[in-house]
Design a protein around this nucleic acid. Structure first.
Lengths: 108, 108
DNA sequence: CATAATCATCGTAATATTACGATTAACAAT
DNA sequence: ATTGTTAATCGTAATATTACGATGATTATG
């Protein structure tokens, strides 16, 4: 299979899982950190920062775009990437509330 | 391939990605929420709460255990699961600091 | 001891993910 | 126009993930 069942789960659960899944690769964590380390868009040199080929990095960027965490604006021959502020703060809110929901109910 | 490259990334990045990956399935989100909704361990009826077969749920529980987020104590014929408080608060700290690191540096 | 209940594991199948090189598309500059 | 640069996409291969039924192991209970 390899196919994730979504029927029977809430939209919030499915969305949260999709967000977490997008963060579930070191390269994508590194990309987000690199984008944030520059104050602004990053045109070009993302590939040079990662130990992966250009096509692989492009795939990871695509996944981050699909989940909405980053945007890419075409700037001449290259593309400028940056974190999508709105999506990011929404993600932060959701994760924070998940942690709040799960806090303080431990037993063992 | 399907094999995630970890050389060239920091341990923090790899660990964060592993945590996120563990959260990257609706069933595993649902399991954590269900464990937290009960104040204490949950013996038994996790399977009944999910639209998945017993063996599939067992697999998801195993993944959550592998990343350390939950513990399972054998209690007679059944097993009591609960969130591992230490691992969970560490995860929370790491995610929070990731968000802090990435906040306020947007541009577009 | 036999049976039932609970959960892990095995075996299997379908699909997803990761990664790379090669190619293509778009644009800039000579 | 040709060339070079940048980044997406295609094609491919290897491995991972998801899911299920069936089987095992363990422990109560009759």
């Amino acid at each position: 299979m390899g196919l994730t069942k979504t029927e029977g789960f809430t939209k919030a659960q499915v969305d949260m899982a999709a967000l977490a899944k997008a963060l579930g690769h070191p390269a994508r964590i590194a990309i987000l950190q690199f984008l944030a380390s520059r104050k602004g868009c990053v045109c070009g040199d993302i590939v040079n920062e990662l130990p992966l080929s250009q096509s692989t990095v492009s795939q990871h960027l695509k996944e981050l775009k699909n989940v909405g965490l980053i945007k890419g604006d075409i700037e001449g021959p290259s593309v400028c990437y940056c974190i999508d502020e709105k999506a990011w703060s929404k993600a932060q809110k959701n994760i924070t509330s998940l942690f709040k929901e799960l806090a303080g109910n431990m037993c063992c």
